[in-house]
Design a protein around this nucleic acid. Structure first.
Lengths: 206, 206
DNA sequence: AATCAAACATTCATGTATGTATGTAAAAGT
DNA sequence: ACTTTTACATACATACATGAATGTTTGATT
């Protein structure tokens, strides 16, 4: 099974990505060799190095597969709830939570970035990409919170940035702990209740 | 510099632990070889394998160094605030937050477990130890929340376990994100404000 | 004082991962 | 129909990391 058509090559590439996603998520990035990925995809290492430069390039490609749907969702919600910034925030969080729980690609990727990939200098470009997307998202959320403060649905005494960082912490922390043991609690249900508790708390004090 | 007194051997062991803690936290566990740890401690690999079985045993030893002070703090607070379960929870969280921010050993260890160590089968005993301690802690906190519900400082309509999982998520998420970039926000301040927001939200709804 | 054993250093044998270079058969271009 | 790429497979050279085995020096023991 050597040379094939261009469409077949794309299939091979996807199979490599799927295999990498599965193995990385199951056994960790640095603990998985290129050969294991190749074997799982039914090819040799040569195939990987033909499609990707190295392991980092592979992970990088994995991230590209799921980043787009997230962006689309954001735009939809913005159009759907233009005058309810707080609900916009809530729905955005819960939508991502839902995706992490039910979309296998999203779940595997978050799992990889969260628990299966050491945050070291070598993988810096990957995590920077992760963070830049997040920081951009934080800025947007800060604006939504400020809008909510003008509507008095969030106490004006609170610092909007702190509010958002706390909310992200809550969601990320739930992801982090849920992925450690997905049987320990139901992600969506817990996220809904605790997020509402938090959002409820935003109405008073500061 | 070969054989030394028993006290000197302990010094060597501590220097090895310090070096490992530093290197693991800086460059990641699987990305740091035993030789690099040995060099950083000014000895050879032989010294490591004399004191520790392997890399996992080394990490395991790192965890033992910081686990005790946490337990002590818990008992102190329990005695100090016997009738204020909610404040007990709050102070406990903020105390750990303070430790993570200011105690270098604690910070390095949490950083290692959080960002510098892949959660894979090989390291399972380590993470299990981490989790067993946490689950035990969760159970204690659930009881505190139930007490608070009897006092009506927490709405009886909420599920105590969910409340605690959310609180842990919040704190863990803040750790997780703060350790990614310790300059991005102040951990203690943010933890105080967002935790209070959350605790505030507990008083109503369900 | 002689012996033992601890506390390392040194060396070696082995496995394994990586990157690259080269080979090759078939599809794509002309 | 001929040439050129593409899409891999194969083979190789290199580099580490590990663990164990062995050596060596000196404190501890009696």
């Amino acid at each position: 099974m050597v040379r094939r058509t261009k469409a077949d090559a794309l299939t091979t590439k996807h199979e490599l990505l799927d295999a990498a996603e599965r193995l990385f998520s199951e056994r960790g990035v640095s603990n998985t060799s290129m050969m294991q990925v190749a074997e799982a995809a039914g090819v040799t290492r040569g195939a990987i190095y033909h499609h990707f430069e190295n392991k980092l390039d592979l992970i990088y490609a994995l991230m590209e597969r799921v980043s787009l749907p997230v962006d689309e969702m954001r735009d939809e919600l913005r159009a759907q709830l233009p005058d309810e910034p707080l609900r916009q925030l809530r729905e955005r969080c819960l939508h991502i939570v839902h995706q992490v729980q039910h979309d296998e690609h999203m779940q595997a990727l978050v799992n990889i970035l969260c628990h299966k990939c050491e945050y070291v200098e070598d993988t810096l470009p990957i995590h920077l990409r992760h963070l830049s997307g997040r920081n951009e998202c934080i800025e947007e959320c800060v604006k939504l919170v400020e809008l909510a403060q003008q509507q008095n649905t969030v106490s004006a005494g609170l610092d909007a940035r702190t509010v958002v960082i706390g909310m992200f912490g809550l969601i990320d922390g739930l992801f982090y702990n849920w992925l450690l043991d997905t049987e320990y609690f139901d992600l969506s249900e817990t996220a809904k209740h605790t997020l509402d508790t938090y959002l409820h708390g935003l109405q008073q004090g500061g």
